[in-house]
Amino acid sequence: MSGYHHTTTTENLPTEHLNPVFTSENMAEVQVILKRYPEGKQKSAVLPILHIAQKQWGWLSSPVMDYVATMMDILPIEVYEVATFYTMFHTNPVGNYVLEVCRTGPCCLLGAEQVIDRIKERYNIHEGETSADGMFTIKPVECLAACGFAPVMQIREQYFEHLSVENIDALLDQLAATDPKTIGYVGNMPVDVK
């Protein structure tokens, strides 16, 4: 388990989290998003903007959330309370890949629990923890609206369907050998692992 808890301390934070600023590409996207809401209702943009922030920094530290608040001209607490309510946002450091494996009923009928157990066993970690090499965080999640393709896992924007204890190891090997920056960032269509 990571030692970082959500506080205002900046101790031990990676340097890119200190004085965070959106890249010009991301800032351009943020500006487009802000225009989607009526005058004076820009707070509506907090979820889409937090998604962009998480894409850039990997997880949402206090300085990153404070930066989003300042940029949107809302209070930091208005960002914290949103970031901690919605399960997609990581408010603690995570590995290169967050394995968001569905743990809900329909996926469990077809072996999701065994897949989750296999991942935990393989890296000797508990739910929410990251493998020793910093590569994989296991985060069981609730139904991903893909129950007919169960068991299912999401990594960033990408769905991986029809997982099993037989194919999960090969998939993890393949991910470990791939540049994490190339997986799941660009709206890839779901992959059938079967």
Binding site: R36, S44, L47, P48, L50, H51, V82, F85, Y86, T87, M88, F89, V141, E142, C143
Partner: peptide, 9 residues
């Protein structure tokens, strides 16, 4: 416009 949620049933 399309608006994304954040993961909450």
């Amino acid at each position: 416009h399309v608006h994304p949620g954040g993961g909450a049933y």
